[in-house]
Every structure is written in C-alpha cells, then in structure tokens.
C-alpha cells in the first residue's frame, strides 16, 4: 500500500514536471528561471561566495542570458556539475545551457550531440612547475609526476603529447582543482597541467606565486564556450547572440557606464542602436524583447568588463587578455555583425 503511494507520488511529480516538450526558450520563459550548469568551483570562473551568490566569468554568461531572456539577471538557478555529470545534465534537459569551461571538440559536437554556440575563452593546456626544478621546457619532463584534473580533455592531450614526444611520465588524476593545488604545492607531483587560465588562477592563490613558472609549451587548443542541446536552434541562437552581444558591445564601446545614455538617446552609430534595440527589430527576430541585449550587457557589463572583474589583471587571478582580446587588438574575439 505504502509502496504504491511512493510510486504514485513519483509519477505525479513526474507528470507535473514533464511539460518539457516545447522549445527551451518557451520553457525558460514559462518557468521564469534559467537553469544554468556551472562548475562546482574554479577560481575566477565560477564559485559561490559567502552569501551563496555565484560569482565568476562563466557565471556572468549565465546571468547575461537570463537577463536577455527574462530581463532579470538574478533569475538563474545555478546547477553545479562535475566533469562526469555535465553532459548528461544538459542532454536530459535538467539544465538549459552549460557554461562550465568546456572545450569545444568534434566528438562532443557531433557524437554527443551538443551545439557549442561560441567561445567565451580561448585557452590552451599548459604546464606549471616549481622554479627550483630548473625546467624550462616540457620536453625535459621525462619521468616526471604530473597532476591532471580528471574528467577533461587534458588527460587525452597529455597522453598524446608525451607519446608523440616519446617521453615517459606518471599521471596523478585528481578530481578537483583545490585538491590538485594541494598535491602540487606539497611536492606530490612535479608538474601541474590544466588549461593555462586555470594554471594562472591557481598560481595566483599561492603564498609565493613567483616560485612557480608556466612552461612555454601550450600543447592543445582549448576553446571554452557555452553549449546547448542539438536540435533546438532557436534557443541556440538566443545563447549564441547573447554571447556575441557581450563581445560586440566591447568592440563598439558599449559598457555598463554609458549604456543608459546610449539607449535613452540613440546616437548615430547604427550598430550600437541595433544592438540596444533602439533601431531595427533584432530582439523580435530572436523572440525576445527589444532591449534584450541591453539587459544582457547591464547584467555584468560587456565582455571586457566581465573579464576584468572576474579574471582580469587586477583580480587575484590576473590573466592578460592575450588571445581573448578583440580582433581589432590582435585577439581572436570576433563577433559577427548585428544586422
């Protein structure tokens, strides 16, 4: 008898929650909340603070999308995911989008059936070693013990790199960055390898950051970006163009300080006007309000502001723009035109 209660309650709950057949965009609007998958904790990219507020660069993308769709940057449910759970969470519809330093690869795109909507951080896998080891190149690492974060592409890159260079190594797989840092600092591994941004962020938190060097070799391309499920192109467009709006805003000079003025009194730059919805009907085409991009930019600032606030040179993480500068400054950020 009690058993049937349990199953009954289950099914009831299932039916109640089971109206996910419509498009993701409609779902999000109906729900009034965006379910955004994030990491369980990477310095600068996503972690909860003391008040339970999520902060970070990837988190900023989630907030921008929520602001664009719902007009409220705080209408986000952050769903912490691990390397293992992230893809199933997205595939099963538990989250609407994943913004969790995830590398865009062929098999993830094609075989796992996800759509990467763009790149919000161009990264590459690097190595960090203590200075006292006297190593200046990754090719000198024969026989070294290497800490790697498991559940990522880094494991495969590492295996490939050492095999092609014919050097031996001892991998130490580690679940989280915090643990990896502890092992590395204690000397339980000679080298720590992960995305270069992660290395810089980790090094910045050390007692003595200058005692550690990043080796010049970058052994892989790691374009990190937000992704959505295959087959829901409308939703994919929303996320893709929200990201593009943040990038384009920096390019054309919209920031959170001047955005009020620019949208109140349309200037004579048509692209700015189109982005801010004072000209044309881009928002309508996306199925959003006219001020969608304005809301997205207001949520945390344009791409550059997000970068500076969370991982830029003035933060403890201290990353330089590098590849992530606008194409006009020699970087790779290149938003398609808003027209």
């Amino acid at each position: 008898m009690k058993k049937s209660v349990f199953l009954g309650a289950l099914t009831a709950a299932g039916l109640a929650a089971g109206a996910a057949a419509a498009g993701t965009l409609d779902d999000v609007k109906a729900r009034g909340k965006l379910n955004c998958g994030v990491t369980t904790g990477v310095v600068g990219f996503g972690a909860p603070d003391a008040n339970g507020e999520w902060q970070g660069f990837d988190v900023g993308v989630c907030r921008a999308v929520a602001a664009a769709v719902l007009g409220d940057a705080s209408a986000v449910e952050f769903v912490p995911t691990t390397g293992k759970t992230r893809f199933t969470a997205l595939a099963s519809g538990e989250i609407d989008m994943l913004a969790r330093n995830t590398t865009w690869t062929f098999s993830r795109d094609v075989d796992l059936k996800f759509t990467f909507v763009g790149v919000n951080y161009y990264d590459g896998q690097g190595f960090m070693v203590p200075k006292e080891l006297g190593v200046s190149s990754a090719t000198e690492l024969d026989g070294a013990t290497v800490c790697i974060q498991t559940g990522t592409t880094t494991e495969l890159n590492l295996a490939d790199y050492f095999r092609s260079n014919n050097i031996s190594y001892e991998p130490v797989p580690i679940e989280t960055n915090a643990e990896a840092q502890q092992q590395y600092l204690a000397g339980a591994c000679d080298v720590y390898t992960t995305d270069a941004s992660g290395l810089a962020a980790t090094r910045s938190a050390f007692e003595d950051p200058t005692a550690h060097v990043l080796l010049p070799e970058i052994i892989s391309k790691e374009p990190l970006g937000p992704l959505v499920r295959h087959g829901d192109n409308e939703w994919g467009d929303v996320v893709r163009w929200t990201l593009n709006a943040l990038i384009a805003a920096e390019e054309v000079g919209i920031n959170s300080a001047n955005i009020g003025d620019l949208s109140a009194a349309p200037g004579n730059n048509p692209e700015i006007n189109r982005i801010l919805g004072t000209e044309g009907n881009l928002g309508e085409m996306l199925g959003l309000s006219a001020d969608w991009a304005k809301n997205a930019i207001m949520a945390g600032g344009n791409y550059g502001e997000l970068f500076e606030k969370n991982i830029g040179e003035n933060t403890p993480v201290g990353l330089a723009r590098g590849l992530n500068a606008q194409w006009t400054n020699g970087g790779l950020l290149y938003s398609p035109p808003f027209r």
């Binding site: 390397g83 293992k84 098999s107 075989d111 498991t150 494991e155 797989p173």
Partner: peptide, 18 residues
C-alpha cells in the same frame, strides 16, 4: 584518484565516450 574500476570504466571512459 586511485584508478579502480569506478575511476576507469565509470570515470574516464564514461567521460570520454559519453
């Protein structure tokens, strides 16, 4: 990070093959 059957088959293999 001890590579037992959970770490290999249900860990990295699961991650890499989906």
């Amino acid at each position: 990070g001890y590579m037992d059957i959970t770490g290999t088959l249900m860990g990295i293999t699961l991650n890499q093959t989906g």
